[in-house]
Amino acid sequence: MANVRSWLIDDSPSSRLQARLGRAYRISGALSRNPLAAIGAVIILILILTAIFAPWIATHDPLKQDLTQRLLRPSGINWMGTDELGRDIWSRVVYGARITLVIVVLVAVLAAPAGLVIGAVAGYFGGWIDRILMGITDIFLSMPKLILALALVAALGPGIENAIIAIAITSWPGYARIARAETLTFKNSEFIAAIRLQGASSLRVILGHVLPLCTSSMIVRVTLDMAGIILTAAGLGFIGLGAQPPLPEWGAMIARGRSFILDQWWVATMPGFAIIIVSLGFCFLGDGLRDVLDPKSGEQR
């Protein structure tokens, strides 16, 4: 163990792999020393594990209705009670983790890279390219996110896939703005000039040298945004434009529980807790990552 550790923290690594692992080790070390970030990371880890092992963790079939078991209080058999169709809420929340995770991952995979590239291209080239790209970005930014998402879903038709597309389309402009701002701060720096002098094409400079510098602020931002994305997805589910029944999506579950909120509080509250906890988890982790990855603190001079 001691050997592995000293291999990892060696400040003269002897291979690329060792250098990369060492960096990852230092970052995770710094993260684990930050209590909130550690809590956040644990929450996200639990979310991921829950999503993967949902069939084993769930106690019932999330879709199986049993009208004789309607609206039961939380008990030893139905840990979080049952809903109006007699489905076990615990199992639905557990399976809901899958949907949440898919939404989060897909949005991150679609929106963040798109925003990153658009912002970096605009910032790097400047001039009219910048004006056009940022004009488009501003148009998107000037519309309230939820309303834009609503309009898109209304146009595309309700459903989880369309909700994901809508959320992705509404969230890239923020990333483009950050990437552009970051790019502007170092596009005139000497290390970029040095690479250009070696004959590198603009594509190479942007992909290989500009983007890696934007990624850490982007990771932080995306993590912090995850909470908002989950909430938007839940919001869309809540008004019936996101995941469609009988999918166990948390927002849709709250929406259905709303009618019984006074007498059968658990139907709406349990998925609500899940949303809050996961959102908080992402916020904590994002804050922690900011402290660790921000080039102005942490590892740099």
């Binding site: 000497e190 290390f191 080039p295």
Partner: peptide, 21 residues
């Protein structure tokens, strides 16, 4: 031209990419 002629910049702190080994 890049093959024949290269430049070394003034500031060693600013001329290396901070995220590259």
């Amino acid at each position: 031209f890049a093959k024949h002629c290269q430049m070394v910049f003034q500031d060693p702190y600013g001329s290396l990419h901070p995220r590259k080994t």
